[in-house]
């Protein structure tokens, strides 16, 4: 496997990143950067519980 992602595999790579799976092409700098961004965005607190109680669940009419 070369360090660069094959063009026709970009969809597979992006899917793997989206699933937060280990990406085979981690030597690719673009993939590595995106993986770092994903890790940073995901790993601060709990995105699911964020201020859940402060959101009204009743829509306006």
């Amino acid at each position: 496997m070369t360090a660069h992602v094959e063009d026709d595999a970009a969809d597979v790579v992006l899917d793997a990143l989206a699933r937060r799976e280990i990406v085979e092409w981690a030597a690719d700098p673009a993939v590595r950067l995106l993986a770092a961004l994903v890790a940073d965005v995901d790993d601060v607190g709990d995105v699911n519980d964020y201020r859940l109680s402060s959101v009204s669940i009743t829509p306006s009419t």
Partner: peptide, 16 residues
């Protein structure tokens, strides 16, 4: 399928 807690802990990640 909705991720619980940190995504790093989620088996299925975000996409699913």
């Amino acid at each position: 399928n909705v991720t619980e807690g940190r995504v790093a802990d989620a088996a299925t990640g975000v996409r699913l």
